[in-house]
Computed example of a mutant assay.
Amino acid sequence: MKIITRLKWAQWLCVAGVALAVLLMIGATRQVKQELQRNERAGEIVSGVVALRYLSLEYAQTQERRSHVQWQLRKDSLQGMLLRDDLFREEQEAQLLHDLQENLPLLARHFFRTAAGQAGTARYAGTLRGAAPAGSAPVRPADVAHPRT
């Protein structure tokens, strides 16, 4: 075999190697983008859950209408995020997402039951002191400016 023929074979082999490396890089880039999207979505869900926790604690401590309304808005936002489950396809992730979707209404029920109990306690204490009932007006999301998330 002539040297020129060997060089042409080597050249084609190098071109094929570069093409293969480019294809692998494109595939890896696509996977990394998907993982970043999944991580971003998971981060949003975690921050929503943490925000609900802190708003629950804040409401338990201060019993402000603002905390109550923000809790409602944050719950609705988290519920919307949980419904967009197109990125979580693995079995364990799907199960965790399903558990969160099932537990969010239970959490809301407990929060509103606790809030109603605290409002009833405050009204009872206010009537004992002769003051106006605290928290007697219904809480509406339109009463408070929407928080930026």
Rank of each mutant, 00 (worst) to 15 (best):
49 V>N: 07
75 K>P: 06
82 L>D: 01
112 F>Q: 12
78 L>K: 04
84 R>D: 08
117 G>P: 00
66 R>P: 01
126 G>D: 11
95 Q>C: 03
87 L>C: 02
78 L>S: 07
55 L>M: 06
64 E>M: 05
86 D>Y: 06
73 L>I: 09
123 R>E: 11
66 R>W: 03
62 T>V: 08
92 Q>A: 15
86 D>F: 04
89 R>M: 14
132 A>L: 14
90 E>A: 13
129 R>E: 14
78 L>T: 04
85 D>P: 02
113 R>F: 11
72 Q>G: 08
114 T>A: 12
120 G>K: 11
85 D>L: 00
81 M>S: 02
102 E>W: 14
90 E>S: 14
64 E>W: 05
83 L>F: 07
96 L>F: 15
126 G>P: 03
73 L>K: 14
109 R>Y: 14
126 G>V: 02
115 A>E: 01
116 A>T: 04
65 R>T: 07
109 R>G: 09
80 G>P: 00
130 G>D: 09
119 A>T: 12
130 G>V: 08
98 H>C: 05
65 R>Q: 10
95 Q>D: 10
88 F>K: 01
113 R>N: 10
99 D>I: 03
119 A>E: 10
112 F>C: 07
70 Q>S: 07
89 R>D: 13
130 G>R: 13
109 R>T: 10
117 G>N: 00
114 T>D: 13
110 H>E: 08
97 L>D: 00
104 L>H: 13
51 A>Y: 02
70 Q>G: 02
107 L>Q: 13
96 L>I: 12
134 A>N: 12
122 A>P: 04
63 Q>A: 10
71 W>Q: 01
122 A>C: 05
70 Q>A: 04
118 Q>H: 09
54 Y>I: 06
56 S>E: 15
96 L>Q: 15
114 T>L: 11
105 P>Q: 04
131 A>H: 14
48 G>R: 01
73 L>H: 12
128 L>T: 05
50 V>S: 04
66 R>D: 08
82 L>N: 05
108 A>N: 12
68 H>N: 01
83 L>R: 10
60 A>G: 12
70 Q>C: 05
105 P>D: 03
77 S>R: 05
134 A>Y: 11
113 R>A: 14
122 A>W: 06
113 R>E: 14
118 Q>F: 07
84 R>N: 06
125 A>D: 08
98 H>N: 11
68 H>R: 02
104 L>Q: 12
68 H>Y: 06
62 T>A: 10
103 N>Q: 15
127 T>W: 15
55 L>N: 07
105 P>M: 02
52 L>V: 02
68 H>E: 06
126 G>C: 09
71 W>K: 02
77 S>D: 08
114 T>V: 07
52 L>Y: 06
52 L>E: 02
93 E>L: 14
57 L>N: 13
94 A>H: 11
133 P>E: 07
136 S>G: 03
71 W>C: 00
63 Q>L: 05
67 S>Y: 08
115 A>S: 01
96 L>K: 14
100 L>P: 13
57 L>Y: 15
64 E>A: 06
64 E>C: 03
106 L>H: 11
116 A>W: 09
135 G>C: 03
65 R>S: 08
110 H>D: 07
112 F>L: 11
127 T>M: 15
82 L>K: 08
48 G>Y: 02
133 P>D: 05
49 V>D: 03
124 Y>M: 10
109 R>Q: 13
136 S>D: 07
129 R>Q: 15
91 E>P: 02
115 A>C: 00
125 A>Q: 13
105 P>G: 04
122 A>H: 06
70 Q>P: 00
51 A>K: 06
63 Q>T: 03
